[in-house]
Computed example of a mutant assay.
Amino acid sequence: MKRTGEIVLAIIGVILSGLFAIGGLSFNALIDNPEFQEGMNQGINNDPTLTQGDIDAVISIIESVGPFLLVVGLISVILGIIGAIAIKGNKKPVLAGIMFILAALVIGLGTIGIGFLPGILFLIAGIMSFVRKPKVTTHDAF
């Protein structure tokens, strides 16, 4: 049985999840840029309603976004690749389905819904892995 649909969905999901990882890397590089930090501090300091504790909280949240996106993207990419390898040749469709659904949960929930597109692709590939069964052919002895 050919599993082209699952493989194509998995590859697209892996590519989109990889974009989240690349986005996390670029966000890390941006946060380390002194010009960006200065502009961010000026923008935050211009708001008179913010206290120093609020400013520190906002900055710590912004600094944690990059590494988090990187980790979530990489985990999802790894799970998607394992699933695609497992489904190739219809070897282990149950393992592939589990990996695809885990990848969907990681990227979909880990990004708080921002990664819904790769999450949906992985979820569809996972469901297809479980649902599609090879056709049973019967041979008559007559």
Results as ranks from 00 to 15, higher is better:
41 N>L: 11
78 I>M: 12
6 E>P: 08
102 L>H: 01
15 I>M: 13
94 V>R: 09
126 G>N: 03
35 E>F: 08
17 S>M: 05
91 K>C: 05
98 I>D: 09
123 L>N: 06
113 G>W: 11
84 A>F: 02
30 L>T: 12
13 G>R: 11
18 G>F: 13
54 D>H: 13
34 P>D: 07
85 I>G: 02
64 S>L: 12
130 F>G: 08
39 G>R: 11
6 E>W: 06
73 G>N: 10
19 L>M: 11
83 G>R: 02
103 A>W: 03
135 K>P: 02
114 I>R: 05
42 Q>V: 13
115 G>F: 03
12 I>G: 03
65 V>Y: 13
72 V>I: 15
1 M>V: 09
141 A>R: 05
44 I>C: 10
116 F>Q: 02
63 E>T: 06
55 I>C: 03
77 V>Q: 10
88 K>H: 08
77 V>E: 07
122 F>H: 10
102 L>A: 15
18 G>Y: 11
50 L>Y: 00
10 A>D: 00
98 I>L: 15
101 I>G: 09
142 F>E: 15
28 N>I: 07
76 S>F: 10
129 S>M: 09
108 G>P: 07
70 L>S: 02
109 L>N: 12
79 L>A: 11
138 T>R: 03
66 G>L: 04
75 I>K: 07
54 D>I: 10
6 E>T: 09
72 V>E: 08
32 D>E: 14
25 L>K: 10
125 A>T: 11
138 T>P: 09
93 P>L: 01
33 N>Y: 03
68 F>C: 13
51 T>V: 13
24 G>T: 04
